[in-house]
Design a protein around this nucleic acid. Structure first.
Lengths: 86, 86
DNA sequence: AACTTACGTAAGTGTCAGCTTACGAAGTCG
DNA sequence: CGACTTCGTAAGCTGACACTTACGTAAGTT
């Protein structure tokens, strides 16, 4: 994702920058695609992947919300423990 | 952690509320103790565990900071992708 | 048409987290 | 002291994950 955030890239180019094999990159991309975090388009024999802006934004919103709820719980538990101490 | 946040409890009592065995609970508690998230004290043959307020607060601070940094990166990448689109 | 490049997928493998059962240690109570 | 409770730990199992190699396919090249 970080690499793709820099610029759209082919599978082989991505694998060249990473310490894993090309098929491994394909498998990662398959998951990311299914999660709507990347999109791909064929260009000749190659296949260019790039980040899916909409999917990324949606994930961000969900994470924001989840983190807010988690933090609220966290705060509540911590304050509750603190209160029972005193 | 949620159970312990309600009230300090023994290992057996905790295991009774959870879908796993008593030794499994012990193993979880060992990790939590090593992470300074719970404390324990012997009471007769039993051993009462409770949340470590200080450790929990420290974790909260670290998570707040980490999440802030992560969100900044996230925002930067998203806005960068958005900008290159237009 | 033959060859090359780029890719996806299937099949196999190593590793690890998390669980279980079995056992031993420490404390309590008759 | 002996029986009982509570707990920790060791040993072993299992499923999932992430990777690899091998192979088949589609598109471009000579």
């Amino acid at each position: 994702m970080q690499r793709l955030a820099q610029r759209p890239q082919s599978v082989t180019d991505l694998a060249a920058e990473l310490p894993i094999s090309r098929p491994a990159v394909s498998q990662h991309l398959r998951v990311l695609k299914r999660a709507c975090l990347v999109t791909d388009r064929p260009v000749g024999t190659r296949r260019i992947y790039e980040v899916d802006r909409d999917g990324l934004a949606a994930l961000r919103r969900e994470l924001d919300q989840l983190w807010g709820a988690t933090l609220d719980n966290f705060k509540r538990i911590a304050e509750q423990a603190e209160q029972e101490q005193s």
